[in-house]
Simulated assay, not measured.
Amino acid sequence: MSAATHRNFIVGLTGGIGSGKSTVAQGFAAHGVCVVDADEIAHQLTAPGGAAMPAITAEFGQTMQQADGAMDRAAMRQLVFTDSSARSRLEAILHPMIRTECATQLARASSPYALLMVPLLIESAAYRARCDRILVVDCPPEIQLQRLMARSALSEAEARRIMAAQTSREARLAAATEVIDNSGEHAALQARIDALHQHYLLESAKPFVKS
């Protein structure tokens, strides 16, 4: 017999690097929505004194640790792009910790729905399974490239390499339940955020029926 119950309603937020996920997340946060940011959690885990640093230095050596105790991101980025096994070893350390902290923060969320921001959401069946909706932030690759180069002071070749390592734009759009275009004016972006916020409030208010 089915019964209505209450649970956290989760909107997964993703998009290609440089698409503007953080800007969109800030727009929802301004409405009082709890935002759980997997990237921010990863930064905390690899900051000075971060919980992942002992395992990272044990696996990769002290050369991957800066003088202040944080992970040397530039050195690690170079390593994982030239050594696929290094990427897998780093993910084996970080991903379980990130998932655990995401779950903890989502469980504490008090807003009608929560936003789970994960760059690799489409690639992860575990994250997708947690989400009631998938919101993809989209913009043309040329704009992505310009933003990434400007933000991270990367060469065009480096930026293109990072973009190519992610899932395709087509795959992200195919997985989306909603899409938000971040290639135009901020006013248009904010209007779309406002409309989606109202939509998600309505969706989250519906009773969840468990078989």
Rank of each mutant, 00 (worst) to 15 (best):
M1G: 15
S2A: 14
N8M: 11
I10E: 01
I10C: 00
L13F: 02
G16T: 03
I17M: 15
I17R: 01
G20Q: 01
T23H: 05
Q26A: 14
Q26K: 13
V33T: 11
V33L: 03
V33K: 00
V35M: 01
V36W: 02
D37Y: 06
E40T: 11
E40I: 11
A42G: 14
H43F: 04
Q44K: 10
A47G: 07
G49Q: 05
G50N: 05
A55G: 06
A55M: 10
T57L: 10
Q65T: 13
D68F: 08
D68W: 10
G69W: 08
M71I: 14
M71F: 08
M76S: 04
R77C: 06
S85R: 10
R87C: 01
R87P: 03
S88C: 10
S88K: 11
R89G: 02
A92K: 12
H95L: 10
T100P: 03
T100E: 15
C102D: 04
C102E: 12
A103P: 02
T104Y: 07
Q105D: 04
Q105H: 08
R108Y: 06
A109P: 02
A109V: 02
S110F: 10
S110Q: 15
Y113C: 01
Y113A: 01
Y113D: 02
A114H: 02
L115G: 02
M117T: 09
M117S: 11
L121Y: 06
A126N: 09
Y127I: 04
Y127V: 03
Y127N: 03
R128K: 14
R130W: 12
D132E: 13
D132C: 07
V137K: 00
V137E: 03
D138K: 03
E142C: 02
I143M: 09
Q144L: 08
L145K: 09
Q146M: 08
M149V: 08
A150F: 09
A153D: 12
A153Q: 15
A153E: 14
L154F: 05
L154H: 05
A157Y: 07
A159E: 13
I162C: 05
M163F: 06
A165E: 11
A165I: 10
T167F: 13
S168F: 09
R169H: 10
E170S: 13
E170N: 06
L173K: 14
L173N: 07
A174W: 09
A176L: 07
T177W: 10
E185I: 12
H186F: 15
A187D: 10
A195C: 13
Q198I: 06
H199F: 14
Y200D: 06
K206A: 11
F208G: 03
K210W: 15
K210D: 11
S211A: 14
